[in-house]
Write a protein that binds this DNA or RNA. Structure first.
Lengths: 105, 105
DNA sequence: CACAATACTTCGTGATACGATGTATTACGC
DNA sequence: GCGTAATACATCGTATCACGAAGTATTGTG
């Protein structure tokens, strides 16, 4: 999909991916794949950004001898999703403006 | 609205604003105001970009002693709007993923 | 023992929205 | 007739950000 359109969606996608259960990088990418494809470099950049914005917290844990970083959503992260939902009305009105067929003459 | 979310919408908004009738900078901004607010510097950057991508053509005309640049959408510009419409299914599926309430426990 | 899959990291680049600022002209109030 | 707003277009610099490329290290698997 169009990279610019993606930009406004990726952050909330990642937050949504850890909303119900803590998760880690590799799994987030797989879970999101049906909806959006993102590379590792993109994901880890986003995770750092969201952590800096206190929208998630990180915890390192060992899993079968390998270290994993588990990400946990915070109240601010949940609020971010809520803000996104609230903005959706505007997005829909823009979509309708862009796609309306008034000049079919 | 969130600037990142805006990014994927602005180009098509501008194209939609000239879809049915040629228009010029100042008027495009006013016409779009109910849907998205954008500054002049942003608009003219977008217009240049869309012209470079052959999605619109420019014609300079005098209007009451003042020069105006009128923008006219091309077939490629119309196709761009069509592509946007086709991508919307993906956007909706992302929106549903992000906002679904499965973990209300 | 090579190769894929898992897991995380860093670096550089190109795209782009926006504020600040500038240039002109017309219109309006006083 | 003079300032101020509105109209109209333009340029510059900056911050944000998705991504490819490349790297490190471990665990299977043939």
């Amino acid at each position: 999909m169009d990279i610019q359109l993606k930009r406004g969606l990726l952050d909330v996608c990642v937050l949504a991916a850890i909303k119900n259960e803590d998760s880690y990088g590799y799994r987030i990418i797989k879970d999101l794949r049906p909806y959006v494809v993102l590379s590792e470099s993109t994901l880890y950049t986003i995770l750092k950004r969201l952590e800096a914005a206190s929208m998630l917290t990180v915890r390192t844990a060992e899993h079968e001898g390998r270290l994993r970083k588990y990400y946990h959503i915070t109240a601010a992260g949940l609020r971010r999703i809520e803000d996104f939902r609230n903005e959706w009305k505007e997005v829909i009105s823009i979509y309708q403006f862009v796609t309306k067929e008034e000049g079919h003459a």
